[in-house]
């Protein structure tokens, strides 16, 4: 479960990377459109864009290869319902015992007065 949340977080990071990439693309073009564009800025932004997109691609490819190794098309046929039900029955037993003991206590209190 922890590994899976880790993966989901990585995918969230990739999402953020896409946004960053788009932002740097916009910045690069904006820089170009200024009256005095500084080519250094443009180049740095463009390289950011390309690098981020490469990261995105690598990350996604990694996840997709993991999925090819790990998943099947069919649903899992097992479940933990059996032990869940048994546990709930155990809870009911305890609750019943508790109810009886509280009744005893109530009787005791009634007679103590």
């Amino acid at each position: 479960m922890a590994a899976l949340t880790q993966r989901l977080k990585e995918l969230d990071d990739i999402e953020r990377d896409i946004t960053t990439a788009m932002q740097s693309a916009g910045q690069a073009i904006l820089e170009l459109s200024k009256d005095k564009p500084s080519l250094k800025q443009v180049e740095s932004q463009t390289s950011n864009f390309v690098k981020t997109l490469e990261n995105v691609e690598n990350g996604l490819t990694k996840h997709i290869t993991y999925l090819t190794q790990v998943s099947t098309g069919q649903a899992h046929e097992g479940s933990s319902y059996a032990s869940q039900k048994d546990l709930s029955m155990a809870w009911h037993r305890i609750h019943h015992a508790r109810a009886r003991l509280m009744e005893l206590e109530r009787l005791k209190n009634k007679h103590m007065q």
Binding site: M22, Q23, A25, G26, Q27, I29, L30, L32, S33
Partner: peptide, 9 residues
């Protein structure tokens, strides 16, 4: 370019 950048941003 400005309009394109604006769209992307």
């Amino acid at each position: 370019l400005v309009s394109a950048a604006a769209i992307i941003q």
